[in-house]
Structure formats: structure tokens, C-alpha cells
Amino acid sequence: MNGADRVTGRLTYRDVGATRHGPLPAGYNHLHHTTRIGRGRAVFEAAGTAVTTWRMHRGSGAGLRASAGRAEPGVRVEVSVGVGPLRISAPCEVIWTVHEKDRTGFAYGTLAGHPETGEESFVVELHDDGSVWFTVTAFSRPAAWYSRLGGPVVPVLQHWYARRLGQTLRRIAAA
């Protein structure tokens, strides 16, 4: 790990950092989804800020509690979906961040109590042609009885959520 990597919690998987350095580990479902967000430095900056300050997650309709206002290694995050007794919470910890001239984002890994085990990254990039892209990369497998019961539906829902995040980010960056 380097200076932008620091893990303080008890992660539930071994391949910490694989969404950053690859390859994604065997034995997991893999997700790689890319969405074009727009064009130009202003769109890149707005999208990068929305990703790293949780605005994208909150704007997608997910509940989110974080131990800090910005994604930094060691920050605890709990993402939740559903209502009342049907609410599912997913505790995570930010394991790496990137803040470069043309690349911004972070990844979090699963903690005990998460319905899955694995890692997910959210990265915004400004390409040489001025286009701005958002990529979700993840590897996961069921950790709770209800995610195992969901079987092949769970990866479909994860892909749907990645698309929703991309649409949300495009809307935020265009505003």
C-alpha cells in the first residue's frame, strides 16, 4: 500500500486494492461499468467532487452515513437501501483514493455485516479528447444468507445500481 492507502477496519476479503491495481480476483462476480458523463474540465471537477463527497451516492437514492465528509482512506461508510424492516445496510471502509490531474475517485471494501464481501471503486477520468468518463469496478460474492438466496439476481442488481450511479453523476455534473 502507498500513502493514499490505509485500512483501519477489519475487511472481509483478502484481495485489498485489486480494483486499483488489478487483476480482479477469481472466485468473485466481477463488475466493470463505464458511463460517459460529459465534456471538459468543469464537468470533470464537478463529477470528481460529487463522487468523493458522497453526493453521487446520496443523489442515487441510497442512504449514506460516513465518518467524514469526503472519501479518504480509513473513512467508514454505511450505504443502505430499502425502508423500515426491509432496509439493508452495507458497512464499508474507504481503502484507497486517487486525486490526480485527470483522475479522481476512491474504493471501499466490505466490513462485517455487509451482505456481500469484496471491493468497489468509483473513478472519474478526463480523457485527452476532453470527454469525461465514470467507471465502477467491483468484485464481490455473497456473504449473507439473503444475498446467497438472491443468486444470479444480485449481480444484475449491482449492474443496475452502477448504471444508476452513472446517470446520477451525469445529471449532477451537468447542473
Score class of each variant (00 low, 15 high):
residue 141 R to T: 12
residue 45 E to F: 01
residue 165 L to D: 00
residue 71 A to T: 03
residue 21 H to N: 15
residue 6 R to S: 14
residue 128 D to Q: 13
residue 22 G to L: 12
residue 172 I to A: 05
residue 106 F to G: 06
residue 116 E to P: 04
residue 124 V to H: 12
residue 16 V to I: 04
residue 152 P to K: 06
residue 69 G to R: 15
residue 20 R to Y: 08
residue 58 R to S: 11
residue 54 W to E: 00
residue 53 T to F: 01
residue 56 M to N: 00
residue 59 G to Y: 14
residue 173 A to E: 09
residue 99 H to P: 09
residue 135 T to Y: 05
residue 113 G to T: 11
residue 22 G to Y: 01
residue 114 H to Y: 07
residue 126 L to R: 05
residue 97 T to R: 12
residue 163 R to C: 03
residue 85 P to H: 07
residue 124 V to Q: 11
residue 47 A to S: 07
residue 158 Q to R: 03
residue 55 R to D: 13
residue 59 G to A: 11
residue 140 S to N: 10
residue 5 D to H: 14
residue 102 D to V: 14
residue 156 V to H: 07
residue 34 T to Q: 07
residue 35 T to D: 05
residue 76 R to H: 06
residue 171 R to M: 10
residue 98 V to A: 13
residue 53 T to C: 12
residue 54 W to S: 07
residue 80 S to Q: 08
residue 40 G to W: 04
residue 148 R to D: 02
residue 88 I to V: 15
residue 155 P to R: 06
residue 146 Y to D: 04
residue 20 R to P: 03
residue 49 T to G: 00
residue 94 V to Y: 04
residue 130 G to V: 06
residue 76 R to E: 02
residue 162 A to P: 00
residue 6 R to T: 13
residue 57 H to Y: 10
residue 173 A to P: 01
residue 1 M to D: 10
residue 25 P to V: 06
residue 119 E to R: 01
residue 157 L to C: 02
residue 137 T to D: 13
residue 77 V to D: 05
residue 70 R to C: 03
residue 61 G to C: 08
residue 128 D to N: 06
residue 66 A to Q: 04
residue 140 S to Y: 08
residue 131 S to N: 10
residue 30 H to D: 01
residue 145 W to T: 06
residue 76 R to L: 13
residue 47 A to P: 07
residue 125 E to S: 15
residue 27 G to R: 00
residue 97 T to Y: 00
residue 166 G to T: 07
residue 88 I to P: 01
residue 62 A to L: 15
residue 131 S to H: 09
residue 40 G to Y: 10
residue 144 A to C: 11
residue 158 Q to P: 01
residue 40 G to T: 06
residue 135 T to I: 15
residue 1 M to N: 08
residue 121 S to R: 12
residue 138 A to F: 03
residue 157 L to D: 06
residue 168 T to C: 12
residue 151 G to L: 02
residue 174 A to V: 09
residue 45 E to M: 09
residue 6 R to Y: 10
residue 43 V to M: 04
residue 36 R to P: 00
residue 116 E to I: 05
residue 128 D to K: 12
residue 168 T to G: 05
residue 93 E to G: 08
residue 36 R to L: 04
residue 29 N to A: 12
residue 27 G to T: 02
residue 50 A to H: 01
residue 115 P to M: 14
residue 45 E to V: 10
residue 52 T to Q: 12
residue 34 T to M: 00
residue 81 V to C: 03
residue 158 Q to F: 04
residue 50 A to I: 05
residue 23 P to Y: 07
residue 29 N to Q: 14
residue 5 D to R: 15
residue 152 P to G: 07
residue 32 H to Y: 11
residue 58 R to T: 09
residue 72 E to Y: 08
residue 98 V to S: 09
residue 108 Y to F: 15
residue 145 W to Y: 06
residue 53 T to I: 06
residue 117 T to K: 11
residue 30 H to C: 07
residue 104 T to N: 11
residue 12 T to Q: 13
